[in-house]
Design a binder for these strands. Structure first.
Length: 853
RNA sequence: GGGCGGUUAGCUCAGUUGGCUAGAGCGUAUCUUUGACGUAGAUAAGGUCAGAGGUUCGAAUCCUCUACCGCCCACCA
């Protein structure tokens, strides 16, 4: 390969990825003396496309992976693919719908096979996209969430929980989507504020007491009245105290229900009287349990009124039933008013259907013991969180966690291995023969439960399932995922990990925030503001996307996508490409291109020092997951130090061995962040061997601290001269005269090269004239400028004297403060003194100059 | 109702044991047809670190309060 003028990522990226993959570089090494480093990828939807959030996920995880691989750890990045139970099901059901079919046209096994085929036809896209993002994961270890080993582990866990009595079947109020015909966990329900009405309805007392003939309840859902089994008032509410225990006649029915006392009724709200419908409201359900009330189901799973609602209402939708109930009450004179209110209503997060709380028999996990262990582990700091505050948030959540409904009524998932006796609905057994709808056991016939597991029940076991072939990699090193998955995923992995293995599933948790659109809005298909990572890769390159995504981003915080950062990153790749092109050119032209890399000039010592510094900094920052700062550090090194100063100077010196070594070090250090361009360069350079991905992390370069410091002085001189050249009228360059200055004397050529001054003449002190440069430590440097320009310069000098005076005041005030001198660290005080001294000298020089001009 | 973030340059944001002159990218201004790069180089302008109070020799950073923006959880008859 040869270096073209500009780096064009799309020409190299696919080949480079193939090179890595074929070479086996993604496989974990098994070096006994090395540490194990393991990251499990949050499995993306097997048949979906990656979104920008995946871009960030992969960038962060792959930086860690590549860094630890370079450091020599046995590094294992485990990819996954998610069957995405409900998500995929929704997509498939839509497909059925478009074909004029419904799920009820098929049996469960048939549907399962259909979706399986559907997913496998679509599959592979996501995996290609992961490759485009550069994920250096071990593809042979890819685990699909329906793989046999997943199912086996999930069944073992279920059986263990079952045997220990932590699994129970219960009738509870569940969040039910009548369109998708499935229940949801509380966390999966989206609440939205909506305008509604609060109706007042009179319930007549059966036997009027103390002049009270009726009580008025407030409700937003009149249709549920048909399922009322009590009316509640607050026990402290004096208005109703003496009618507690009385009966009221439930309108539109022939039932009589009791007035009960319960804290749930808020005397401040509405009339202070609440109708209780245990079968259709979570709070009422709790009241019902406390008071042992009947639970009458008046709304069915189809979203229509049941027979129990009465012949007048049976078969109506809830909306129609509401209208009818209202008009019937109106007719009977029991409707006493309505007022508009805003209240929050639960919706299905996929189809937006209003969630009905319905009574349903489901499998539940008793989470109390699991949560307790998880809380203990968290409080004992066995897992470190980034950002730290997420840990407390999680503990808080776990403390209030309710039992976990793990049944879902969708065919696409892991079947629940439970069977019920056909003759006894309370006789459930655990059995793994889920491929049969009916089994025989002990002379009895059992029918399979048609439900599948909640996705999080299986993915909550992900870390130990995926590492089962290399058990030394469990617990994993870090779980990196989106902050939105703290409860549903991270929390469950910790609970189930501890339960099953006794160990925490990972040592660190790093949670990234959401990637918002450029205006800071949440991305969504409906808003049309979605950014496709693969398009960015095509346009700017995979490395540019990564660097751009991690730039200026800190843990746990939602941040806007910034295309300017992506462009800046693309430019960095191009810069590095051209740096390499220049060095390759120098190598090609060199007479003796080989030899020991050694710093032989101030600038070389300086760059060695800076490379070492950046090397240490990157290590320190990555250990703390401070990706953005690590990226900044390497960016600054490459662009502002290596290219602008060191390489510019090397155009004169051409220390080929050092150029080669320093370039290699930079390529390796940047490789985790920008794998493609660094590898492409590595493969293109004439002298490098092997692959960048499998190099060793650079060791320290030798340098002289004194010489490095000298170069810094030189930089100040150069910058000062350049600044004058720009600001002086006419904006041209002038000879730089000096006397009695060894640094300038030794570096005349270099100064001329950096400043483009027409000459650097050494003069005698008595010949000194022109513009005197005020540079601390270098009092004898002059710009030889014409007299008229010199005069104009005076005003500028005056300003600078004033501002320097202010700086000196600040330092003096600080030193005059006895507490500062007493309490601040000595080094700091000494440093301040030193600064003051140099500035005072400088001021004297400038004042003297001012007199002269 | 409970909790968590955020408020720093025109824009998007960094800034973690409190300590040099508060940084980056983009944008802006001026200059540069330097044979690595114009996806470039050089120089520069631009900040009462949301507001008020406190702790400290010293606060963008720690504490208290306030305002505004965003998110999460619970509840909403």
């Amino acid at each position: 390969m040869k270096f073209s003028k500009a780096y064009e990522p799309d020409q190299y990226e696919p080949e480079i990825y193939a090179l890595w993959e074929k070479s086996g570089a993604f496989k974990p090494t098994e070096n006994k003396n090395a540490e194990n480093y393991t990251i499990v990828m949050p499995p993306p939807n097997a048949n979906g496309n990656l979104h920008i959030g995946h871009g960030l996920t992969i960038a962060l995880e792959d930086i860690l992976t590549r860094y630890h691989r370079l450091k020599g750890d046995n590094t294992w990045y485990i990819p996954g693919a998610d069957h995405a139970g409900f998500e995929t099901w929704v997509v498939y059901e839509r497909k059925l719908e478009s074909e004029g079919k419904t799920r009820f046209d098929y049996g469960r096994d048939e549907l399962y096979d259909q979706v399986w085929n559907f997913v496998h036809e679509q599959r592979g896209n996501m995996e290609l996209q992961l490759r485009a993002l550069g994920a250096s994961c071990d593809w042979d270890s890819l685990t699909f969430t329906l793989d046999q080993k997943v199912v086996d582990t999930v069944y073992n866990t279920f059986e263990k929980l079952w045997k220990q009595g932590l699994i129970y079947r219960g009738v509870k109020l569940v969040n039910f989507c009548t369109k998708h015909q499935t229940a949801f966990a509380d966390i999966e329900v989206t609440h939205k504020d909506e305008k509604g009405k609060l109706w007042q309805i009179a319930y007549p007392l059966v036997k009027p007491k103390d002049g009270i003939e009726e009580i008025i309840v407030s409700t937003t859902r009149p249709e549920t009245l048909l399922g009322d089994t009590a009316v509640a008032v607050n026990p402290e509410d004096n208005r109703y105290k003496n009618i507690i225990g009385q009966k009221v006649k439930l309108p539109l029915t022939d039932r009589e229900i009791e007035i009960i006392a319960d804290e749930h009724a808020d005397p401040e709200y509405g009339t202070g009287v609440v109708k209780i419908t245990p079968a259709h409201d979570p709070n009422d359900y709790e009241v019902g349990e406390r008071h042992n009330l009947d639970m009458i189901t008046v709304i069915g799973f189809d979203g229509k009124m049941t027979a129990e609602a009465g012949a007048n209402y049976e078969g109506l939708t809830t909306a129609d039933a509401r209208q009818k109930v209202l008009s019937d009450l109106e007719t009977q004179g029991l409707l006493r008013g309505e007022e508009p209110i805003v209240h929050s209503v639960g919706h299905c997060y996929k189809c937006d259907t209003v969630i009905e709380p319905l009574l349903k028999e489901q499998w539940f996990v008793n989470v109390e013991p699991l949560a307790r262990d998880a809380i203990n582990a968290l409080e004992a700091n066995r897992i470190k969180f980034h950002p730290d505050n997420k840990k407390r948030v999680l503990i808080n959540y776990l403390k209030n966690l309710k039992d976990w409904n793990i049944s879902r009524q969708i065919p696409w998932g892991i079947p629940i291995p439970a069977f019920v006796n056909v003759d006894d609905p309370t006789d459930w057994i655990f059995d793994k023969r889920v491929d049969q709808t009916e089994i025989e056991k002990g002379g009895k016939t059992y029918r399979r439960d048609e439900d599948t597991f909640d996705t999080w029940f299986s993915s909550g076991q992900w870390p130990y399932i995926t590492t089962s072939d290399r058990k030394q990699h469990y617990p994993t090193s870090v779980m990196e995922t989106g902050a939105d998955l703290l409860f549903q995923w991270v929390g469950r992995m910790i609970m189930l990990g501890l339960y099953n293995t006794g160990e925490v599933p990972f040592k660190d948790v790093y949670m990234h925030g959401m990637v918002l659109d450029e205006k800071g809005q949440k991305m969504s298909k409906s808003k049309g503001n979605v950014i496709n990572p693969i398009e960015i890769v095509a346009q700017y390159g995979s490395d540019a996307l990564r660097l751009g995504l991690i730039a200026s981003r800190s843990a746990g915080v939602n941040q806007a996508f910034s295309s300017s950062k992506v462009i800046a990153s693309r430019n960095l790749c191009n810069k590095l490409w051209n740096i390499s092109r220049l060095i390759q050119d120098m190598v090609d032209k060199a007479e003796k291109p080989n030899g020991e890399a050694e710093a032989t000039s101030n600038g070389e010592d300086w760059i060695c020092r800076e490379i070492n510094k950046t090397n240490k900094e990157i290590q320190k920052l990555l250990a703390k997951y401070r990706f953005a700062e690590a990226g900044d550090a390497i960016y600054d090194l490459i662009w502002n130090k290596y290219a602008d100063w060191f390489l510019e100077g090397e155009k004169l010196w051409k220390n080929i061995p050092l150029l080669k070594t320093t370039l290699e070090q930079i390529l390796i250090m940047l490789h985790p962040f920008a794998p493609f361009v660094t590898e492409t360069i590595w493969q293109t350079l004439s002298w490098t061997e092997g692959m960048c991905i499998t190099q060793k992390w650079p060791s320290e370069l030798k340098f002289s601290a004194t010489k490095a410091a000298k170069f810094e002085e030189l930089m100040i001189i150069v910058t000062n001269i350049r600044s004058h050249f720009q600001s002086l009228p006419g904006a041209s360059s002038y000879p730089v005269a000096f006397y009695d200055d060894k640094l300038v004397y030794d570096n005349q050529l270099l100064i001329q090269h950096y400043t483009k001054a027409p000459g650097i003449p050494e003069i005698k002190p008595e010949d000194a004239n022109g513009l005197h440069l005020a540079i601390a430590g270098h009092p004898n440097i002059y710009l030889e400028i014409p007299a008229d320009i010199h005069a104009k310069y005076k005003a500028n000098l005056e300003e600078r004297i004033l501002s320097l005076g202010k700086e000196i005041d600040v330092l003096e005030t600080r030193l005059r403060n006895p507490n500062y001198v007493k309490k601040a660290p000595k080094e700091l005080v000494d440093e301040t003194k030193q600064q003051l001294e140099t500035k005072q000298h400088l001021l004297e020089d400038m004042k003297a100059e001012f007199e002269l001009v």
